[in-house]
């Protein structure tokens, strides 16, 4: 029972990934096909989740929306990890003024509102998924840098690092062979939680019209479309809302479950 959260999280994440994969090859209807005669239909055998204000099949849009969700999550987390992890390892190993400089910059970046960053980027470079991913990625660098630094400090205090140094192993070797493998679980947990954050942020940016401008359906944009017909067809907001909630919950549960699963080993290292 202790791992229930982990299993539910893994199941939800698998579901979202499966939806994205399936939609690459097959959707019940064309997710961009406007059919004038069938606006705002309720759920039926033909359209499981009904149709939207333009008569497009909701289920197809939800499936295709999963693609954007996954891509945004992967790219945002990728940007954050690729920049944040080396920064954190540098700060944790160099100590002294390098550590101070990196961490103070991180503090400042942490205090900068992510949404404001997204609006600034969108204003300068135009609203697009790339802008949204970049904004989310940049905004989550500090949390990666911090958690990596904390883990690095812990590993650097161990006797196995001391033994390596006593043999003349330099920092690249220590980083690759000792620090990185030992903080990998920590980074995995952070990636999972950040993934959830990225999904939510992308939905919010889509909703505000700061992400995809094209016809490509995203869950955030579906939510935005639903807003205009909310009092006539409340179900329109429920489907993308559920999808976002399930994906966010899934990645959060997965992250928490992994943390619980891996914690005992981390304690053994310290």
């Amino acid at each position: 029972m202790r791992r229930l959260g982990l299993y539910v999280g893994a199941a939800l994440v698998t579901l979202v990934v499966a939806m994205a994969l399936v939609s690459l090859f097959w959707t019940p209807y064309d997710p961009t096909l406007v059919v004038a005669g069938q606006r705002l239909q309720g759920p039926s055998a033909a359209h499981w989740l009904g149709t939207d204000a333009m008569g497009i099949d909701n289920f197809s849009r939800i499936l295709v929306g999963a693609q954007t969700t996954i891509v945004v999550g992967v790219v945002s987390v990728g940007i954050a990890a690729v920049i944040g992890v080396p920064l954190g390892m540098l700060a944790g190993q160099a100590r002294g003024w390098v550590d101070e400089v990196v961490m103070r910059i991180t503090d400042i970046a942490y205090a900068f509102p992510a949404l404001l960053l997204a609006i600034l980027l969108a204003a300068r470079f135009g609203a697009s998924p790339v802008t949204a991913m970049t904004a989310i990625g940049l905004a989550t660098i500090p949390s990666f840098a911090r958690i990596t630094r904390a883990g690095t400090l812990q590993v650097m205090r161990t006797d196995f690092v001391l033994a390596a140094r006593a043999s003349g192993i330099r920092w690249p070797g220590i980083s690759l062979r000792h620090v990185l493998p030992n903080i990998a679980p920590l980074i995995g947990v952070q990636a999972s939680v950040t993934f959830a954050l990225a999904i939510l942020a992308e939905a919010a940016l889509s909703f505000l019209g700061l992400s995809t401008a094209a016809i490509v359906p995203t869950w955030g944009k579906m939510l935005r479309d639903a807003q205009t017909v909310m009092f006539n067809a409340p179900l329109q907001a429920v489907w993308p809302g559920l999808a976002i909630a399930a994906a966010v919950l899934g990645f959060n549960l997965l992250g928490d479950g992994l943390r619980d699963l891996l914690d005992p080993r981390l304690r053994e290292v310290s």
Binding site: G168, R170, P181, N182
Partner: peptide, 23 residues
Amino acid sequence: RSSLDPRMTVGSIVTEPLRSRHL
């Protein structure tokens, strides 16, 4: 428990000093 890296095999642990640039 602290002086052996839990994520390395005994073989890599024991031969690590041989990877040193001095050797």
